[in-house]
């Protein structure tokens, strides 16, 4: 465990908890893409299949349980909670995320470490995570006014994968050259998708104005 990876896990955990807290405290989910949250739940379920089979460490198991339960809680709030679900921007959140699921699954069938159920699910979860933010970014551009908690949520989510890329660089030089091109390419794509968001987020922070994404 190196500092980059730990920082990455903490910013990832923080982003999910910020979102869950925002929804729990304000009982609204306007500006939040339910489709992105559903994709993240699928990412965690597909990746953490080994939760009950392989014990890596207490930290690893606890974090997996926290990620799965918190993203399930967010989806539950947005689908079932009577007060929250009313504030969901159903008409705005129109990204066809089923296309993302199908495309990344096909990609995982072609590009994987080993053609086994576990490995295909793992590669699927890595590819899907790289594009899962798309419905949320589209929704932010439509909603224009990004409330700062949602803005912070997306920011931390982008920062987490950026830390993971530093972690992979660190591990590359310290632990030798394992085949990790799958997370490498997906991680770069994922962080790249945030690039313009980071740019506007930084501008809004620098000029101390509300975050406005160009249409």
């Amino acid at each position: 465990m190196n500092a980059f990876r730990f920082l990455g896990d903490m910013t990832h955990l923080f982003s999910v908890l910020v979102l869950l807290l925002k929804i729990y405290a304000t009982k609204t989910c306007s500006g939040v893409s339910r489709k992105t949250q559903e994709l993240y739940l699928l990412v965690f379920v597909a990746r953490y299949l080994d939760l009950f089979t392989d014990y890596i460490s207490l930290y690893n198991s606890v974090m997996k349980i926290v990620f799965i339960t918190s993203s399930a809680a967010i989806v539950w709030y947005m689908r079932r909670h009577p007060q929250v679900r009313r504030t969901y921007d159903k008409e705005q959140d129109t990204f066809r995320h089923s296309v993302l699921v199908a495309a990344t699954f096909v990609l995982a069938l072609i590009f994987n470490d080993r053609f086994t159920f576990r490995e295909i699910c793992w590669a699927f979860s890595i590819y899907l995570e790289a594009v899962a933010i798309l419905p949320q970014l589209v929704l932010l551009q439509r909603c224009r006014n990004v409330d700062n908690l949602t803005g912070q949520y997306v920011f931390f989510l982008g920062a987490y994968r950026a830390f993971y890329i530093l972690n992979w660089i660190y591990r590359y030089f310290t632990e030798g050259h394992h085949s990790r091109w799958i997370p490498w390419i997906a991680g770069l794509v994922q962080t790249g998708l945030y690039a313009d968001f980071f740019y506007y987020y930084f501008l809004s922070w620098k000029n101390n104005v509300k975050l406005e994404l160009p249409a």
Binding site: D50, N60, M63, K64, D113, G176, R180, P183
Partner: peptide
């Protein structure tokens, strides 16, 4: 096994 080194990540 070394091959699974990446799989110890979240």
């Amino acid at each position: 096994p070394a091959a699974d080194s990446v799989k110890d990540e979240l």
